[in-house]
Each structure stands twice: as structure tokens, then as C-alpha cells.
Design a protein around this nucleic acid. Structure first.
Lengths: 141, 141
DNA sequence: TATGCACCCTGTAGCAACTAGAGGGTCAAG
DNA sequence: CTTGACCCTCTAGTTGCTACAGGGTGCATA
């Protein structure tokens, strides 16, 4: 199986596959006489594993860990659970950050009456920080 | 005002300030005889604006737009509202992606009984894609 | 047999938005 | 006059790819 087919089978760009090989995530396959990469089922499985983990948002070094754990059938499953929980926590944190952000944006949006910039509340909100934080002696309005 | 003070006043690392200058977001300040950067209030205001917009998650090129709009007091406020709404939509999209991700992770976590890897549901879930998608003829279990 | 096209190769540079380091110069206090 | 905190420029690293440039290969068709 050539690299293009492997890419099609796993919905991965050819460049990405070569990149995974380069960083040691995917083992170098056999080569044809014309030095084309030649992949087998084990590569397909490995790449599919990687892609699935990536889709779930695991960063590459966590994927690397998951791969090496998956290879060691004796190891306890706890480590895997830990990695997943850690990643879950990251996702939760990002979500609450985004929620706060969205709330603040909502407060800004629609506040301006579409007049001139001079009266724009959004621009004001962005600019005002200086007068409030850096020059607290300046009167508010 | 030297770069370190400006950084302290706006909670910005010195390197970041120099980076903003390099990409043309912050105008080059005057220099002391020993070529130290020397900032005034207009730089403080500008950088504070930039940081506030960044905190709200606006990407740098949108910040650039907001800055140039803020400078043109005649322009209509609609453009600003548009940028903010666009950014709000991006935030909303990312949030729903994260929510879906979190849900899927929740389904995985806690599924494994902390036994050997051979029976780990998480590893299984990551690996199974191949047999299901790429080799549909293989029996499920 | 020629030619065209899709595919493959290596190697390098680019994206966002910084951050970190090397290897120096400057300034004020003690 | 030395110490330490600050400043300078320039370069390279981070994450996870993506996009060339400048070639070679394999197969079908005219």
C-alpha cells in the first residue's frame, strides 16, 4: 500500500504521514526499488489510532504515550485513564475560559448604536483600560 | 518610560513588546543615546488596547483592524460590531466543538476497570476504528 | 515509442503568537 | 569599581502540520 492510499484510508494528508514518520510517531515503512514507501496493515492500524486520538484532541506527545502503552499489554490501564482524565481537565478548563470570553463579548456586542467610532462602546471598552488601570486619578467620564 | 516599565504596566513580556514592534503592531518608539527604547503615554494606551483585545481572544490581524478603525474617528461603528460578531461566532463554534469532545472523553473515562491494557476500553476505542472502518468484513468481536 | 498525467521523493520554509537563549552593552548603587 | 538589573540584536524553538520547489516513477493511451 502506497502513501496516498494510506492517506485516503485514514483521511490523512500525505505530508502529515511523512511528518509523523519524521518525528518518530510512525515507524519508517519498507521501500520499493524506486524508494516509494510501502505500508502494511500494521501501519494502517497505527495511523488510524493516532488519528483517532488526535481527533479527540490529544496532543502528539500524549498520543505517543498512549501508543507505547498500547504496545505493552501487561501494563496497567490506570496510566491510560490518567492521561485521558488529564486531557479531559484541559478540555474543561478551555471550555470555561471560552464561556467567560463569550459572555464578555456578548456584553460588548450590540452596545454600540452604529454611530461614529468616537462613540463606539466596543472601542471604548478596549481603550479604557489605560485610563482606569494606569491612570486611576483621571475621572471616569 | 523604558520597555520593562511598559511591560510591567501592561502585563506584557518585554520580548512580546519587541515582537509587536517587529510585526508593525506597535510603532517604533524614540531611542535613548544608548539605543534603549523610550515609550510615551500613546504607546502605553496602544499596547493596553492590544492586550485587552488579545485577552478577548481577537487574533492579531483583527487587532490590527480594530486599531486602524479606532484611529479613524469618522468611520462607522458597524465594522467594529462586525468584527466582534465574527469573533463571537468563532468562540461559539470552538465551544461546541469542545463540548462534543468533552462528552466523548467522558464516555471513555471510567470505562476501564483498571485491569491490563489488553482489556482497556480506551485503548480499544482508539484502536478499533481500523477494524470497523477499514476492514468491515472482520467480525466485531 | 512518445507523451501525458497522477503519483511519489527530499528538503526547506511558512503559519500563529509568542518564548527563550546567546552574547553582548548600559546604568545606578554601594 | 564591581555587582546586578536592566537593555540591545539576532536566532532558533514551540505545536501540528501545510505548501512549495525541483525533481523521479508508473501506467495508460495515441
Amino acid at each position: 500500500m502506497r502513501i496516498g492510499q494510506l492517506g485516503a484510508a485514514t483521511d490523512t494528508k500525505v505530508e502529515t504521514i511523512r511528518y509523523y514518520e519524521q518525528i518518530g510517531l510512525l515507524s519508517p515503512p519498507a521501500r520499493s526499488p524506486s524508494s516509494y514507501r510501502s505500508y502494511g496493515m500494521e501501519h494502517l492500524q497505527r495511523l488510524a489510532f493516532i488519528r483517532r486520538a488526535r481527533d479527540l484532541g490529544f496532543p502528539l506527545d500524549q498520543v505517543r504515550e498512549l501508543l507505547s502503552i498500547a504496545d505493552d499489554k501487561e501494563q496497567s490501564c490506570e496510566v491510560v485513564d490518567d492521561i485521558a482524565r488529564m486531557h479531559r481537565a484541559t478540555v474543561a478548563r478551555k471550555m470555561s475560559e471560552l464561556r467567560a470570553l463569550g459572555d464578555e463579548l456578548d456584553r460588548l456586542i450590540g452596545q454600540c448604536g452604529h454611530g461614529a467610532i468616537a462613540d463606539c462602546r466596543i472601542i471604548e471598552a478596549l481603550a479604557d483600560v489605560v485610563s482606569n488601570e494606569e491612570r486611576p486619578d483621571v475621572p471616569e467620564k
